[in-house]
């Protein structure tokens, strides 16, 4: 893998029909292969629109978008982009298509014209990664909200994408389910998968290698988590979570080393508690 970006968006503008103002007004984002980028921003800042552009679900009205070195405007590339840069939405009910869990996961690979052995392998792996193996024969409607979100993720993973874009896709998970999913994402990222995660959950953000912030349809800050925690967080008007306020105090009093993550357990470890 070279250093060429796997996603490259320049000056993307997008307006929804009938909307008073554009959702994106000149957004730039470059993501390198293997990166884990957390994309932050208030509701309505354009995060989901940007995600849909990365996945070629929307075509920018102006500007350029290349996903996996393919032009999102080229109709021949669109199916390849959607498969190679898979997108998981917030509401799993919008993306579950089959009535049985394993059949839903198999839906994507079946449409790729793979052999039945390969489909089975992918389905097994995706169910395993998302912790749904024991539920494979269940009706997808009978799953809980968190399990449905994991099913939606399994469906995307079965495509074996190079880039996984998660649009608030962990919002319905309980904290334990989220921890398990983060561990799964960590493994996927370690094995080379590029992750773009739209989230407002601190525990998610703290694990990303890079943070990008959106405001009014543009990327307004892009950098390393440590710089972000030091002060940028407040500048963008995000609510400061309690643990971040504690982290800032502990850092400024030199009670914990720089580079500690603003996670309760990491800070407790650093203080030998």
């Amino acid at each position: 893998m070279g250093k060429d970006p796997i996603i490259s968006i320049r000056g993307a503008v997008y307006s929804y029909k009938g909307a008073p103002s554009p959702a994106l007004c000149g957004a730039d984002l470059e993501v390198l292969p293997g990166e884990w980028v957390a994309l932050l921003g208030a509701n309505g800042s354009g995060k989901s629109t940007l995600a849909k552009i990365c996945n070629a679900l929307l075509e920018p009205t102006q500007g350029d978008c290349f996903s996996l070195s393919m032009d999102c405007r080229d109709p021949a590339c669109v199916p390849l982009i959607r498969q190679g840069a898979a997108l998981v939405f917030q509401n799993p009910d919008d993306q579950i298509v089959a009535s049985i869990v394993e059949e839903d996961v198999a839906f994507g690979p079946e449409n790729l014209g793979l052999t039945s052995g390969e489909i089975r392998r992918r389905v097994d792996r995706a169910l395993e990664l998302t912790g749904l193996s024991e539920h494979r024969r269940r009706g997808s409607h009978s799953l809980s909200g968190g399990q449905k979100q994991r099913l939606a993720l399994a469906g995307a993973l079965a495509l074996e994408p190079k880039v996984l874009i998660l649009d608030e896709a962990t919002s319905m998970l309980d904290p334990e389910g989220r921890a398990a999913l983060l561990e799964c994402l960590r493994e996927l990222n370690a094995s080379g998968m590029t992750l773009i995660q739209i989230t407002h959950i601190m525990e998610d953000i703290a694990r990303a290698g890079r943070i990008a912030v959106m405001q009014s349809g543009r990327i307004v800050w892009d950098g390393l988590p440590a710089d972000f925690w030091r002060g940028e967080y407040l500048r963008f008007g995000f609510d400061e979570p309690g643990e971040l306020a504690l982290y800032r105090e502990l850092i400024s009093r030199k009670m914990i080393p720089e580079g500690t993550r603003p996670i309760a357990e990491d800070m407790a470890e650093a203080l030998c508690l």
Binding site: D174, A179, P241, E243, E249, A264, A268
Partner: peptide
């Protein structure tokens, strides 16, 4: 499935280490 908020978890760790503070404490 029930994870306490980070500051409460942190206070819990402090209490386990012998600090005498309420479980819901300010920074």
């Amino acid at each position: 499935g029930l994870v306490l908020p980070p500051l409460v978890r942190f206070a819990g760790r402090m209490r386990q280490s012998g600090f005498d503070i309420p479980i819901i404490s300010g920074i």
